[in-house]
Design a protein around this nucleic acid. Sequence first.
RNA 1: GUGAGUGUAGCUCAAUAGGUAGAGCACCGGUUUGUGGUACCGGUGGUCGCGGGUUCGAACCCCGUCACUCACCCCA
Length: 448
Amino acid sequence: MSAQTARGMRDFLPEDTRRRNRVATTIQSVFQRYGYEPMETPAVERIETLLGKYGEEGDQLLFKILKRGEGARLGEVDLGLRYDLTVPLARVVAMNAGKLVYPFKRYQMSPVWRADRPQKGRFREFVQCDVDIVGTASLLADAELIAVAHDALTDLGFVNEFRIHLNHRQVLRGIVESAGVAVDREGDVLVSLDKFDKIGVDGVCKELEQRGFESHVVDRLRVLMDATDANPDSGLDIIHEFVQSSPTGKVGLLQLKEMVGVLGAYGFPPGSVIVNPVLARGLSYYTGPVFEATISGFSGSVAGGGRYDNLVGMFSGQSIPATGISLGFERLVVIMEERGMFSDLPCPVGVLVTRMGPEFLYDSIEFAQQLRAIGVSVELIYEDRKLAKQLKHADARSIPVAAIIGPDEKAKGTVILKDLRRGSQHEVPRADAGDQVKRLLSDITGSR
RNA sequence: GUGAGUGUAGCUCAAUAGGUAGAGCACCGGUUUGUGGUACCGGUGGUCGCGGGUUCGAACCCCGUCACUCACCCCA
């Protein structure tokens, strides 16, 4: 019998959970600040809901659930674990289209499952934080999502350490068209182009050649990448040059210009949101603006999203426009742990109430309750062990204050409050102890 | 799915040319039976991932297998 989690699955011990909760509440409060409401959907969806939404690769990565009974023996599948939160949302909207108030703004933070091979910042079970706006084609919605991501990353502590990239599916189509690529090979080009950040101009060109693209196509895209590389802040101008011959591309460009204008009004620091002509994004359901957030020093994205105006229609036949972004919760946690960004998390327990012996136990319990009644988090020692051991336990748990009641204190109706960080202690009447404890705890958190 | 690396005590790691395992930290006890985080002394703890093979003898060599890590594919 091996005590081990399944591949790519993790336990979260209390310290992990404390950190994760900090990230979750920080992100949630941003979502709520913009008027999004929480929503939840089942972990399990019908398999046909999931299949065919994420491309061939995605279908391979779905965790599938065998039918019960006879079907299991035959290997029949009728259910699967959700692969993301966007497709379930589209399903919910299709199911409840008449009941919802539009624009429907919801967020969801839930685990999703992918049968991927784990690596850094990648797991088989991982939490996504999705915010979406359903029922409006307005680009204000897309811009707002960028603002939400911007605020979330900022509040988490990544001030000036991230960048949000913005592009448009129709711009990409325009670029690809004008480079002379057939529509059915657009996907291949975009997949390679998207690796620009990682493998550079030469890497992308090499890959394009390997995929069999003619040299005039590769050369054209090389010019695009060189221009982007040289002037990362001139994305709109570069796109302008590259979509002249494409009506579709021009539409996309106009929309990007509009968004850039709107984003200007949000007042973000220069360079934190940029138009990136080579940002592609893999998922096939995007139809308009696409966005992605990166953090300096981390390869890969920490957020991604875009407009998907046709996804709801796949379920109901009734097309409803929608746009959304997903924050990569796990990657953010990984990066924040690496960079020591949780060092300010306080110990959840404020006071350890020690005990001196059987005859003083009830005093300790009464005192613990006295503190709990005023909202202090208190832990009581269960075993009758020597005081040194009890204080050691407080250390192990980083509890900042110990309360000691022995024969002397019992006789006088006092308690010793010991500040374990400083090593100082003083004896106070038990009636005043609540205020003293609160003062001590606020001193300790304030002085950090 | 592909490739590379690593699996020895709870954790981080040692073990000299194959001779049946050791340190630090942690834990427990003591120096201090009312005071932790510093010091000193002692102690518990290991089927060397698992299975086979070579050998008088394997943690070490060979084969297989599993797990983890990293990278690719793809993605958060």
